[in-house]
Write a protein that binds this DNA or RNA. Structure first.
Length: 419
RNA sequence: GUGAGUGUAGCUCAGUUGGAUAGAGCACUGGGUUGUGGCCCCAGAGGUCGUGGGUUCAAAUCCCAUCACUCACCCCA
């Protein structure tokens, strides 16, 4: 097959669409209960939006974006994440003038040119939520509680919430220097990548899985010992709010996010069951981003949930199939088929879910078989005899009983027979 | 970008040390029931054995290349 989907892109087939729809509708229900409103930004944005927000040196920007120049020479990019677009829309439409605190969510595909593997695709879908315009720890707590509500709504267990604080522009530089000098002392124990990262982006060494680096990192200074008093107050208050919400969490001072815009709170909801892609939800506070993108200096916090990963976890406890049609109309002969087609449309207008057979040469047996496979509750059989008598045969496929039904005013007659 | 594994029917997979028309189960179509589904029985359709080359009297099987998929590194949702 020459036109198969490209690497890392998947068809979501009819069998799985039900799962996705349930996921989305449940998410929308929860968002509404928390007062979030949906926003749908475009998938394509100016490249600069992402380079400015995510950071030039990040993996996403430096090697994973689907970017191209259009016929006018403008640099465009398929969004690798949603936050930048949501903040852009917030600024562009001056949403803060209507309401100082905007609670927004969006659901849709993201694109990153990575090597695919379990739980990782080039087109993947995220449920993304943001609170823009509030700096307090209670908004951190609310968004984390909401994220937990989402994963819990799907009955997922064995998930752990990890939180950390990355400090702010006042205290993070000091910690970075401390970390740099520590790492440079231990440079000989670090892998090549980390020796480089130790200089450019020392926090990223925390993410390394090389054994030597893990040992170095285990004894590295913890950012939690260096954050300023304001950041510490914020972080402590968040923990208090989580405690009183009965949300259990673990402090993880090695939790560093791969996007540059994060400040203070970061968090992740992790699973053990997806191989090395353990993050189902990732998020954090990004107080400087709005201003950095040319907007007002408004603080914000948000998260993204990986839908493919959630679906993979849900897949284990069997998903219910969508129900079959209310009625299957079996016609014998072309004359009957013509009438049946009209009745099918009448019944559909009356609210019934109706399926018909296209091939008039199919035997009744074949049509019954098909009705059965489709899961039809009732089958209406109409042939020459029924046309002339004006009465069809209505069979209940579950009870295995059948009775006559008048073909005039069919929708009303069937409603009556069904009770 | 690096490494490993796997490619046989729509799906899940057999296929011996190379040997003749490449098989099974499920699914699909038809029949057994001249107008009645599920169970059963019978029959049928469906395959460039990922692709290209090589070795050989003979390749699904051995060798090389290539592509695709999967997993892992990396990174993250």
């Amino acid at each position: 097959m020459d036109f198969a989907t490209i690497k890392g892109f998947k068809d979501i087939l009819p069998e799985e669409v039900g799962t996705w729809q349930r996921l989305e509708s449940e998410a929308r229900r929860i968002f509404r209960s928390f007062g979030f409103r949906e926003i749908k930004p475009p998938l394509l944005e100016k490249t600069e939006l992402f380079t400015r927000s995510i950071g030039e040196e990040t993996d996403i920007v430096s090697k994973e974006m689907y970017s191209f120049t259009d016929s006018k020479g403008r640099g465009l990019t398929l969004r690798p994440e949603a936050t930048a677009s949501v903040v852009r829309a917030y600024i562009q439409h001056r949403l803060y003038q209507k309401n100082p605190v905007q609670k927004l969510f969006t659901i849709g595909p993201m694109f990153r040119h990575e090597r695919p593997q379990k739980g990782r695709f080039r087109q993947f879908h995220q449920i993304d939520a943001e609170i823009i315009g509030d700096s307090g720890p209670l908004s951190d707590a609310e968004i984390i509680v909401m994220a937990m509500s989402l994963v819990e709504a799907f009955g997922l267990s064995g998930l752990s919430l990890q939180i950390n604080s990355l400090g702010c522009p006042k205290c993070r530089p000091g910690f970075k220097e401390k970390l740099k000098s520590y790492l440079s002392q231990k440079a000989i124990f670090l892998c090549g990548d980390c020796q480089r990262r130790a200089l450019t982006n020392p926090l990223r060494v925390f993410d390394c899985k090389v054994e030597g680096c893990k040992q170095v990192v285990a004894e590295a200074p913890s950012i939690l010992d260096f954050i300023c008093s304001d950041c510490e107050k914020h972080f402590k208050a968040l923990q208090k709010h989580l405690d009183s919400s009965e949300v259990s969490f673990a402090l993880n001072h090695m939790l560093v996010r791969g996007l540059d815009y994060y400040t203070r709170t970061t968090f992740e909801i992790q699973t053990e069951e997806l191989g090395s892609q353990n993050a189902v939800v990732g998020g954090g506070r990004y107080d400087g981003l709005c201003k950095q993108l040319g907007g007002p200096d408004h603080p914000a916090i948000g998260f993204a949930l990986g839908m493919e990963r959630l679906v993979a976890l849900m897949g284990k406890d069997g998903t219910s199939e969508s129900s079959g049609p209310d009625l299957f109309l079996a016609a014998l002969g072309e004359k009957a088929q013509e009438r049946v087609f009209q009745w099918a449309n009448d019944l559909r207008k009356a609210g019934f879910c109706v399926e018909i057979e296209y091939d008039p040469s199919k035997s009744l047996k074949a049509q019954m078989k098909r009705a059965d496979r489709l899961g039809a509750r009732l089958v209406l059989m109409v042939g020459e005899n029924e046309l002339s008598s004006g009465k069809g045969i209505l069979r209940d496929m579950v009870a295995k009983t059948q009775k006559e039904v008048g073909l005039e005013n069919l929708p009303a007659n069937i409603k009556e027979l069904m009770g």
